[in-house]
Each structure stands twice: as C-alpha cells, then as structure tokens.
Design a protein around this nucleic acid. Structure first.
Length: 432
DNA sequence: CGCTTTTGACCAGCGC
DNA sequence: GCGCTGGTCAAAAGCG
C-alpha cells in the first residue's frame, strides 16, 4: 500500500511536472512571440523612416494584432490549464485524505470487532476490470476459477473474432467468488492481514521460498512484503515482431518451457538491471496469432530504472498495486459498498461511454479501443490488451476523459495508461 | 574470458 | 500416491 502511495505520488508529480513544463513552454513561446513582434515593429519603424512604406507597416500592424490575439487565446488556454492543474492538486489532496480515512477505518474495524468476519463475507473484495475498448462478455471468464494464459488468449481471440466490440473503458468490480477475501485479492500487507492469512501462505508464493532464500538483503523487504500471498501479475498483450517487447529494462533469460495448449514456448526472464531485482517476466506468443506477444510481469523493481523503462514499470507496478490494494481509489470513491453507487453515475465524457454497469456485482466503464481487464486466475492477473491502436483523435478524447475521470481511477494508473495508449508496442518514452 | 542462452533435470502444487 | 504441469536451477554451449 505504501509502495502504491509512493508510486501514486511519483506519477502525480510527474504528470504535474509535465503540465507545468507544458505551461512553461507556452509562456516561453508567448514571450518569444511578443519579443519577436516588438522587434519586427521596431525594425519596421526604422525601415519606415527610410522607405516610408505605409502598406508594409500596415502588414506589420496586422501581424502584430493577430499575434496579440493569438497570445490572448494562449493565455486563456494557459489559465485553463492552470485551473486544471489546481483542480488536480485539490483532487489529489482530497483523495489522499480519503485514503487515510479509509485506512484508519479499516484498521479500526479489524481491531475492534470479530463479528466483522461475517461481514467480510458480504463486503468481499472486488476484482477490478478496466477494459479499454473491445469488450466481450466477461461472465464466461468470470466462471473460470483458474485460467492459464493460453486460456485467456483463446477467450480474447474469440472475442476479437466475434467482433463483439463494446467500445469503452471497462472498470469492473467483481464480487469475488472466493469466500476468503485474501484468496481472491491480496490486500495490502498489514499485521492484521497477516494474522488471518489463508492456507495459501503455505502454498504457492512467488517467487517461491526457495528463490527467496537466494535473494539477498536489499530486495528482501519488498519481497517479504509482497510474498505472503500470490503476487499480482500484469499481462500485456501487444503486437510485436521482435522476440520480446522493448520495455527499456534489461532481462536475462533463465528458462523456457512449452506450456500446455500452446505450441509456442514460454520464455522466462528476470530483470538484470538491479543485482537482486525480484521482477520477472514471462513471454509467450499467442497460438492463434503469432504476431501477438503476451508478456507477463511480476514483482516490483527495487532499483532506479532507466528513463526508457519507467513507462512500462510504472504501468505494471501501478496495475499490480491497484490489484494488491484491493478496492483501489475507485472503490474508495464509491464507498464501502460498491454496488450502492454503481447505478448512480453514468457519464458520456467527451463522447466516450463512461458508465458503470447496472450489475450489482460489477462496475464497468467503457472506452474506445484497447482492452484492459482484470482476471482472477490462480495469480491475480491484470491483462492490458493493447492489440488495437487507438487513433490519435480517440487518444485525445481518451486523454480528456481520463483527466475528468481520474477521481475514480488511481492517478498513477491513469497516467500510466495514457502512456501505454500512446504507443502500446514501444515503451521507450523518447520514441513517443 | 565473461556474459547470455539453451536445455534437461528437478521441485512443488494441484487434481484425480 | 501418482501423474501432470508450471516454474526454476544449473551445467553446457554459444557468442562477442
């Protein structure tokens, strides 16, 4: 949870810095324009002494006027952006306050009443499904308690082939079918949670205990924090001709397997940027479409990342944090009972269908193109389906909608998604 | 020579 | 208990 907070703050500051630099750039260009205009006017007046060309002076005046008008427009836009930035600051602070409140309430709840165990059966955690674009009936997928990556591929492929396109951002909160909250959705690690650890603690962990022993001190804290339960995975589906996606990180292949149901071998990589980095990824081509590369990331980098790797890392870590943090800010916004508000807000933001589903067990927000959803296999896994590229106009609309919508989406995820939407196949920011 | 990749062996979890 | 499967290890091979 703290990692998520830190990540959120970092992403927020990054986006704020972007806005600021954008504003600064506009100010600079404005100043340049005015200086240029003044300079030209001075020159023209000097020239006018010698040539006394009234027509050219008129032209200069006209140009100056238009420049001033343009300057006014840019100033207005500047003001709007400033207001937007201010609003973002306010929203962020409000969210932070709410976040603290919720954390305190949660802790108070758990420490005070043992009766809550019964309530937990009602207030089960949500699986969050954010689907940007192509959307097929998720109910089929919901029915599967355990799906391997290939199974998901098949589902997605079917959805694609059927052309069952529901354009929208799908943000689905599914009431878990698991009785124990922790089995379905790892909550932020806390002493309270560690007490009611399900049997899975002794079961499958990632990295396995054997591996953990080999991980020296530096990464231990993080690993220990993440390992009590199954770690979240972030699966990225994208078209890619190269053996692996260029995500900016350095990876070392440590294994390869033929997974059942897919003739394409699955390759296992670990991050070699940091000596003890726990992050690993699995790369496998889709059996149905060899141009589609499924890359599954697991873990959080415990070292500074190269600039070119931050987009992917922030996305995966944000998505994983969102999953690990359970309800995320979306549900925080919605309150303790997600279904209570699921029918309250339907919005058409900039022409995009942002609306929660009426289904009491789920929340769905739809957005054009691309596909982002959560699944609930043995490992909690988020799949980012980036197979379809959004057009630039759609992206602009998406950006605007995201700005308006970020009260409901974790900020870090919002900004990370925006980054991914810009160029799903290539993560290096300098190529954007 | 050092690093990376390959590949068979090994281990643990899970279902029957 | 047994077999299947996913995930990892580590020795050997490859490469610059």
């Amino acid at each position: 949870m703290h990692a998520f907070q830190v990540e959120s703050k970092r992403a927020y500051h990054e986006s704020s810095e972007d806005l600021k630099s954008c504003l600064h750039d506009k100010d600079l260009s404005l100043t340049k324009q005015v200086l240029l205009a003044n300079d030209k006017k001075e020159r023209s007046t000097m020239e006018s002494d010698s040539k006394a060309s009234s027509s050219s002076q008129k032209e200069q005046d006209n140009w100056l006027e238009s420049a001033r008008a343009e300057m006014g427009e840019v100033r207005e836009e500047n003001q709007r952006l400033k207001m937007c930035l201010g609003q973002m600051m306010k929203d962020y602070q409000a969210l932070q306050m709410k976040f603290h409140d919720i954390i305190q309430q949660e802790e108070a709840k758990k420490s005070t009443s043992a009766v809550d165990n019964n309530h937990q059966a009602v207030e089960e955690p949500e699986l969050v499904s954010l689907s940007l674009g192509r959307f097929s009936s998720e109910s089929k997928r919901d029915g599967k308690s355990k799906t391997n990556s290939h199974g998901k591929d098949e589902d997605d492929e079917k959805a694609n082939n059927e052309g069952d396109l529901s354009l929208g951002l799908d943000c689905k909160f599914q009431v878990s079918k698991f009785h124990n909250a922790n089995e379905a959705l790892p909550k932020p690690i806390s002493p309270v949670n560690s007490e009611d650890q399900p049997k899975e603690e002794a079961g499958e962990t990632w990295p396995p205990l054997k591996v953990l022993k080999t991980v020296p001190s530096e990464g231990d804290d993080e690993v220990v924090q993440q390992s009590p339960q199954k770690k979240a995975r972030v699966c990225v589906k994208a078209r890619c001709d190269t053996p692996t996606m260029n995500d900016g990180c350095q990876w070392r292949k440590y294994g390869q397997k033929i997974a059942k149901g897919n003739p394409c071998p699955r390759a296992y990589y670990r991050c070699t940027v940091g000596s003890s980095c726990p992050v690993r990824k699995q790369v496998q081509r889709c059996a149905q479409d060899l141009s589609i590369l499924n890359t599954t990331y697991e873990g959080t980098h415990n070292h500074p990342l190269p600039l070119s790797a931050t987009a992917m890392a922030s996305t995966t870590s944000a998505a994983a944090s969102m999953l690990l943090s359970g309800s995320s800010s979306s549900s925080s916004q919605a309150g303790p009972n997600p279904s209570a508000t699921s029918s309250t807000t339907a919005a058409d933001l900039h022409g995009l269908n942002f609306y929660p589903s009426d289904n009491s067990n789920s929340k769905q927000f739809y957005l054009h193109n691309s596909h982002f959803h959560f699944t609930s296999p043995s490992h909690p896994t988020i799949t980012l389906d980036l197979i379809s590229n959004p057009s630039s106009s759609q992206f602009n609309r998406f950006s605007s909608a995201m700005l308006l919508f970020q009260n409901s989406l974790p900020l870090v995820l919002t900004s990370a998604l925006l980054n991914l939407m810009r160029c799903p196949g290539q993560w290096a920011p300098h190529t954007w």
